Amino acid sequence: MRFAKTSDYKYRADRLIIVNHGSASAKNIKLTLTVELEAVASKVRDGVVHVPGQEAGKQQWKPWRELDPFPIPLLAPGASFHLPVRVIGNQLGEAAFAHAKLKWRDKRLLAQSWESTVSSTGPPLGGPSLENLEAERQARLRGLMP
């Protein structure tokens, strides 16, 4: 599981990708995302509250706009599940990393799980790699020099 961004998004992830790397179908896939947030005080201007207060600490996080898509009933071996997400990324009160916990059952009906910390910004999907982007930037800089 990871967050990713399509090439037209610059500073935020817009996809959640879950891939079944196993040799059996995964059934009843559940995801829990937890973030550690800092407290944010409300801002009052002209008697109007502009930013609601926010409590600090670990909180459950759901970055999708629509109804919760989990549990996913079935994911075949080698298949991936792409979910549009709404991740603003690294603004005040938001966490850059989330603790992800996936749970599923395999064909032997045994409970499986995976836990990891995932970046909420996400690497780009497709397109040039970071190394290529850096090489292009260096070439442009060399072209500017007399």
Rank of each mutant, 00 (worst) to 15 (best):
A56D: 09
K10S: 06
T6V: 01
S7W: 06
I17G: 03
R15C: 02
S42V: 04
L31K: 03
V44C: 04
I18K: 03
D8S: 11
E55T: 14
K27P: 00
T32A: 12
R45C: 00
H21Y: 12
V44M: 08
N28M: 09
S25C: 09
A24P: 03
I17W: 03
D46A: 08
N20C: 09
K58G: 04
S42G: 12
H21S: 14
T32W: 11
W61P: 00
K62N: 08
W64I: 01
G57W: 01
N28P: 04
D46K: 10
K30G: 15
L16N: 02
S23Y: 05
V35F: 10
A41W: 00
E38V: 12
A24C: 11
S7R: 07
Y9K: 09
R12E: 08
K27M: 14
L31D: 06
R65C: 00
G53F: 00
G57H: 00
K43V: 15
R15W: 01
A13W: 02
A56L: 05
A56C: 05
D14W: 03
V40R: 11
N20W: 07
D46E: 10
G47R: 04
T34H: 06
L37I: 13
V48C: 03
K43F: 12
G22Y: 10
N28W: 10
A41L: 09
D14T: 02
E36L: 13
K58D: 12
G22R: 07
R15P: 00
R15E: 06
A56Y: 04
E38S: 13
A24D: 13
Q54D: 02
H50I: 13
K58T: 09
